[in-house]
Simulated scan of single mutants.
Amino acid sequence: MQVWGKILGAFFGFLLGGPFGLFLGLFLGHKFDKARRNVYGGGFGGFGGSQASQAERQADFFHAGFAVMGHVAKAKGRVTQEEIRVATAIMERMGLQGESRRQAQNAFREGKNDDFPLEETLQRVRQNCAGRADLLQFFLELQIQAAFADGSLHPNERQLLHVIARYLGFSERQLEQRLHMQEAAFRFQQGGFHQQQQGAGGFKAPPSKDQLAAAYDVLGVSPTASAQELKRAYRKQMNEHHPDKLAAKGLPPEMMELAKQKTQELQAAYDLIRKEKHDK
């Protein structure tokens, strides 16, 4: 706690202005201490010690993300080549190379250990992300993506995801909603919309009913949603996943590519639905 500004302000204020000067000096000293704390010892985005703190938190977030991913992969009983392939695919999507890739691989292997401290790891993630719900959501969605990357979810994986969500502060309903949206995202990706997009958001072929339904689920809205409801849901999802906002809140730079891909997916789903409604 920084109090020297208050002490000095009160002292000199009293000498120069008596009781009134004491209170004025105390007030100005408090303002000085607050400004000094923001510059030298504040949270993310400050200077000096705060920059080191941000780098440490980002490194811890990155390490925990892959370590917990390895623990989820172990939930089926043993880590198979399929789980390793999934983790490798996520590293590829992030564009990890060199030291960053080695760190991710080491963290993944660490998470496979029987004595991996899951509870302690998740508590540390939640503490480091206090007041940054979007970052916690990104962490949870990362685990869901990894668990669902093969197109199915093992009962043990689902059970463990509930444990992870609870420690991160999410309810069972919130987790099930995210699981449903991730399943829809998988079906939407299978439709190949990222490859089909051309020009100003057009599509080479009309989507099937299943693909269109998946697009609605990706945005978390009903097919009967009005244009206003659709736009509101789209903006909400984009606001939660926007790379710049996540970066400002402390998302590790190695994970930015995943956030970008998510916003591209949301944009593709929104464009598809709007085009389909316009053509009717």
Rank of each mutant, 00 (worst) to 15 (best):
M94Y: 09
E276M: 11
M1T: 11
G25T: 02
A214I: 00
Q197D: 02
N106C: 00
Q197G: 03
E157Y: 01
Q196N: 03
A269M: 01
E120H: 07
A205D: 07
G45A: 06
K280H: 15
E119R: 15
E229R: 08
P253A: 14
Q267L: 11
A130S: 11
A248F: 08
S53W: 11
D210Y: 02
A225N: 10
K277S: 09
G29R: 04
P243H: 12
L161F: 05
P243D: 07
H278P: 00
F27V: 04
H63N: 10
A213R: 12
N128R: 13
E82Q: 14
D60M: 15
Q189L: 12
T80H: 08
K245I: 05
H30F: 12
K204D: 06
E110D: 10
D244C: 04
V39C: 02
P155H: 06
K76Q: 12
R235C: 01
A133R: 07
Q105V: 09
A269D: 03
V218S: 02
A205T: 12
F20Y: 13
H278T: 13
G151P: 01
L24C: 05
N106G: 06
S53V: 13
F139K: 03
Q137H: 11
T121D: 01
M255F: 07
V218R: 05
A165E: 02
F116P: 02
M255W: 06
E276T: 14
K236F: 10
A130P: 00
I84L: 14
E92W: 05
F62L: 07
R166F: 04
F66T: 09
H63V: 01
G220S: 09
G17P: 03
F188T: 00
D244R: 14
Q145E: 13
L272S: 01
A269V: 06
P155A: 07
Q105T: 12
A133I: 09
R235I: 10
E183Y: 05
G169L: 04
E92K: 15
